[in-house]
Write a protein that binds this DNA or RNA. Structure first.
Length: 213
DNA sequence: CTCCGGCGAG
DNA sequence: CTCGCTGGAG
């Protein structure tokens, strides 16, 4: 796949976007990314607003709230027991200065530090650092993973991430991350990909046929 | 590899 | 009804 050509076409399709985390507290951004794990954006937004309604927006508020109350707020997002536990863990971590410390480290080391926290994996760390630390990193979510495989860029997280970063300049990676996700949602879907109307079908290795990828 | 999970699309 | 969602842990 000619990634540069693909990205240039996506630029026409998705000119720009308003980051939802703009001016947002880094802790809340992390909370949002955790809630979004394997969860649709609509469900994520619902859970986030339920947290706000209950005033559960700071590390101290989350730490002092009953586990059950957090679980209830997160219920619409699914995986709510695990996520409530993760929020407790990152709240403790943030209050111990972990979050602040990570924001002062080089991106590679910040990533390692974050991934020591239970519930923060490579994708959550990558996306967080890209969002709030301006790290030129393309976090590979489920959409980008699927697209990367269909484009023949690799089969695992790191290889797809590296292949994309090799073709996309640092200052465009944040945009590309978002654009690829939008493209994945609208065209390169997991189920029933819309190859017939896809603006990239003529340069896609998969063309119109849809293998089980 | 399996589990966690409510929820919307088809 | 099934599948998959800006995943991660065990």
């Amino acid at each position: 796949m000619n990634v540069k050509e693909a990205i240039s076409r996506l630029a026409a399709l998705y000119p720009d976007f308003q980051p939802w985390w703009e001016g947002e507290d880094p802790f809340l951004v992390l909370v949002g990314i955790v809630i979004s794990q394997n969860t649709s954006s609509a469900s994520t937004r619902r859970a986030l607003s339920r947290l706000r309604e209950r005033g559960l927006t700071s590390p101290s508020a989350i730490l002092s709230a009953p586990q059950e109350e957090i679980e209830d707020a997160l219920r619409p997002a699914g995986l709510y027991r695990a996520k409530a536990r993760i929020l407790k863990d990152i709240a403790r971590w943030a209050m111990d200065g972990g979050l602040e410390r990570v924001l002062s480290l080089p991106h590679a080391r910040a990533r390692e530090e974050m991934m020591k926290v239970r519930g923060i994996g490579r994708k959550t760390a990558d996306v967080f650092l890209a969002f709030v630390a301006s790290a030129p990193i393309i976090g590979v979510d489920t959409h980008i993973m699927r697209i990367g495989r269909r484009w023949g860029l690799g089969t695992d997280y790191e290889s797809i991430k590296e292949a994309l970063e090799r073709e996309i300049p640092p200052e465009r990676r944040l945009w590309a991350h978002k654009a690829l996700i939008s493209f994945g949602r609208e065209y390169c879907r997991a189920r029933r990909p819309r190859c017939d109307v896809c603006p990239l079908s003529d340069i896609c290795p998969k063309r119109g046929i849809q293998p089980e990828l």
